[in-house]
């Protein structure tokens, strides 16, 4: 593994290895001194051409817990506003001595282009509505830690699939690990490519509710044009939201995930969001551990040496 660009690239043994090591990194994060010297002397640059706070912070925390140095970049304060091209920008940062780049960009495929231009290992921090592979990994980690396995579990991903890179990475990661994934969304919020995905599709949440081990609620992304197909927030909650009534119909061990930030009262009712079986904060901590595992594999592997 030279770069981590999309969730389809990984086979099951590689994914399981990343998850096994992420479990070890969770233990590191719980130590009194939550820091190990593994990547001392390496520099991780986070290049977020699209605004993001939590994902960038999560990568920085992961890099720092491994003792790597970090550099960060955000477009508002950069030469991009002076008209510099993406290629010149990333080559400039590579020339400063970065060992690995984390790239988020609104254009699909931008992280792969950056990898080709710089020759450096690149982690895709989210490209358009395409992929967000470390999110897929942290979600699989959260499910595996909560329920002991991923294989054979029924996982529903609910909401605006069409605009969601989280959904796409989730489907492929979880399916590779042996889960049965079912997408729950109105036809208008499904991508055209969905027929090729390794999952079932339904428009009726209530029909599958009682068969589920995991419910993954997507954020209604108003900034990407999602939910405009719904006349109101109330209508969305009624058909696709995790209400208290729906939560009560889930099995006793079923868990609820959400990538954050949550719109309470839209895709999830506040009372459900605060239930111990809603693993939202667990996902955040696991996100740091999963990203540590990815950085460790990319910067510590012999092919990079």
């Amino acid at each position: 593994m030279k770069s981590f660009l999309d969730s389809e690239q990984l086979d099951r043994p590689t994914l399981e290895r990343l998850l096994d090591d992420a479990d070890r990194f969770r233990e590191v994060l719980e130590r009194p001194i939550a820091k190990v010297p593994t990547l001392r002397g390496k520099t991780v640059a986070t290049l977020f051409f699209e605004p993001s706070t939590r994902t960038r912070l999560s990568f920085e925390r992961a890099a720092k817990a491994l003792s790597a140095d970090t550099m960060s970049f955000s477009p508002g304060t950069s030469s991009l506003s002076k008209g510099e091209s993406l290629k010149d920008t990333v080559q400039t940062i590579a020339a400063m001595g970065a060992d690995l780049l984390v790239v988020r960009h609104r254009s699909v495929g931008a992280p792969a282009r950056v990898a080709a231009w710089t020759g450096l290992p690149v982690v895709n921090g989210g490209d358009g509505a395409h992929q967000h592979p470390t999110q897929g990994l942290l979600d699989a980690l959260t499910i595996r830690r909560a329920l002991g396995r991923v294989e054979g579990l029924r996982v529903a991903i609910v909401g605006d699939i069409a605009h969601s890179r989280v959904a796409r990475s989730g489907v492929f990661t979880l399916a590779t690990l042996g889960a049965q994934v079912v997408l729950v969304a109105p036809r208008t919020l499904l991508p055209v490519s969905v027929e090729g995905w390794p999952c079932e599709v339904t428009t009726d949440f209530d029909e599958v509710l009682e068969t589920l081990d995991v419910v993954y609620l997507l954020r209604v992304q108003t900034e990407r044009g999602g939910a405009t197909v719904f006349p109101s927030v109330r209508e969305y909650l009624r058909r696709y939201g995790m209400t208290r009534q729906r939560f009560a119909r889930l099995g006793p061990d079923a868990v609820v995930l959400h990538p954050g930030p949550m719109n309470r009262g839209v895709e999830i009712e506040a009372a459900v969001a605060d239930d111990p079986r809603a693993l939202v904060l667990e996902q955040v901590t696991n996100g740091v551990a999963a990203r540590m595992s990815v950085l460790y594999h990319l910067l510590g592997s012999p092919e990079h040496a």
Partner: peptide
């Protein structure tokens, strides 16, 4: 594993 001084030089073993 996270404290070794030869991370680059050897095939990585699982932690």
């Amino acid at each position: 594993g996270l404290y070794r001084d030869d991370l680059d030089a050897r095939p990585r073993v699982a932690l």
